[in-house]
Amino acid sequence: MRAIFVQIKCEMGQAYRTAQEAADTIAELSELFSTSGQYDLLGKFYLDADQDTGLFVTQKIQKLPGVRDTYTLIAFNAFGGAKGL
């Protein structure tokens, strides 16, 4: 499994609806946060090693109601805090 983070920009007034739909329908979703700034939501998703990231984002995230734009970050390593570095 590998983690990806996706920032999601929503149509005006749709962030909570979009977040609920993502939580209800995307099994790969680990955590979803509301954020301030250019994007409205930040999602952490775990994909299988052979799962296509681009296809996942375009087919599952960008098709959610209210999604206007996305920005995807692929994570390489997870560190366990200051003592784990």
Rank of each mutant, 00 (worst) to 15 (best):
A22P: 01
A27V: 11
T35F: 01
K63D: 01
D50I: 04
D48K: 14
A27Q: 11
E28T: 10
D40W: 02
E28Y: 02
T25M: 01
A19C: 05
K60Q: 15
S30P: 06
Q20F: 05
Q38E: 15
D48T: 13
I61E: 03
F33V: 09
K63W: 08
D48F: 02
L64P: 07
T35H: 06
A27Y: 10
Q51P: 00
V57C: 04
T53F: 02
A23H: 10
S30F: 07
T25G: 03
A23S: 12
K60A: 12
E31Y: 13
D24L: 10
A19P: 02
T53H: 08
S34L: 14
E28D: 14
Q38W: 01
D24N: 14
D40G: 07
A49R: 12
A23T: 11
S34Q: 06
V57S: 01
E21Q: 14
Y39I: 09
L64D: 02
Y46N: 10
E31M: 12
F33Q: 11
T58E: 11
V57G: 07
A27D: 13
T58M: 11
G37M: 08
Q59V: 00
L64F: 04
T58I: 00
S34I: 13
D50W: 05
Y39L: 02
G43K: 08
Q20E: 14
Q59Y: 04
Q51S: 06
E31N: 14
A49M: 10
G43S: 02
E21V: 15
L64A: 02
D24E: 15
L47W: 01
D52A: 09
D40P: 06
A19G: 05
D48R: 12
K63R: 15
L41Q: 01
D52Y: 00
A23Y: 06
A23C: 13
L42S: 08
E28C: 07
T35C: 10
A49F: 00
F33M: 13
S36K: 07
Q51K: 14
F33A: 06
D40F: 08
D50P: 02
T35S: 12
E21A: 14
Y46Q: 14
E28R: 03
A19D: 05
T35E: 03
K60W: 05
L47D: 06
L29D: 00
F33D: 01
D40A: 00
V57M: 08
L32W: 05
K44L: 11
A49D: 15
K60S: 13
D48H: 11
Q51E: 14
G54M: 12
T35W: 03
